[in-house]
């Protein structure tokens, strides 16, 4: 009997691919964001609004992860972004290798900001870094304020959370503090941006955050 010690991270291969993506986007001076959330939090609506606000001045590309449809890619293309659709065919997350292939289909030299819209899921995407500069979560207030505590891995691995649909807070009988307290209890350092993609409330702060990220990338 032979005992072999490997002590290898299971996600090592993905982390290597993520590092390659990171370097590629850095070389192309692109600011990139991985958008993660549960289904129905409003990721695509936030992207549509964001494109409406920024597409006149900036070239924006979107890598769309979706289980079966091309619906979301069509929505963002209609707003002036270049989109590459990845159909995961049932898989519950994107990984760095498939995102790397999608980057090959885009003209990176002509891109300022790149969004990756991950598959709607609060569990699986957390472990799979894609090599973006930032990982952002969208939490719709209709999902309830217990989500951060239920899915801490997800909230621990993000630098920003957009608390979306805040126009519905009065209807739900909830306060924004219910969400900010819950989020900070699992990640005290995270930046919280309360928004309503429907009314536009709070969206300016999000656009500014994106522009600041792009400026920082260009100053590197």
């Amino acid at each position: 009997m032979i005992k072999v010690t490997l002590m290898k991270k299971v996600l090592e291969g993905n982390e290597d691919a993520a590092e390659a993506n990171r370097q590629r986007m850095k070389d192309a001076r692109i600011f990139s964001v991985d958008m993660m959330s549960s289904p129905g939090s409003g990721k695509t609506t936030i992207l549509e609004r964001t494109l409406d606000a920024l597409v006149a001045d900036l070239n924006i590309a979107v890598v769309q992860g979706d289980v079966y449809t091309t619906r979301d890619a069509e929505r963002v293309e209609a707003r002036g972004a270049r989109a590459v659709q990845i159909n995961t065919e049932g898989a519950c997350h994107l990984d760095a290798t498939v995102v790397g292939e999608a980057l090959g289909d885009l003209d990176l030299s002509d891109t300022d900001i790149l969004f990756v819209e991950n598959v709607g899921n609060l569990i699986c995407p957390a472990g799979f870094e894609l090599g973006t500069d930032q990982r952002v979560m969208v939490l719709g207030v209709t999902e309830g304020s217990d989500k951060p505590e239920k899915y801490p891995a997800m909230f621990r691995r993000c630098s920003v959370v957009l608390v979306n649909k805040i126009d519905l807070l009065p209807v739900l009988g909830m306060d924004l503090a219910d969400f900010t307290d819950a989020i900070r209890s699992v990640n005290p350092e995270i930046e919280i941006l309360p928004v309503s993609a429907l009314t536009g409330e709070g969206m300016e702060a999000w656009y500014q955050w994106l522009k600041d990220g792009l400026i920082a990338r260009r100053e590197e």
């Binding site: 009997m1 032979i2 005992k3 072999v4 490997l6 290898k8 991270k9 299971v10």
Partner: peptide, 10 residues
Amino acid sequence: ELTVDGYEGE
């Protein structure tokens, strides 16, 4: 943690 620590075989 998420690691493959090792294996035994012959």
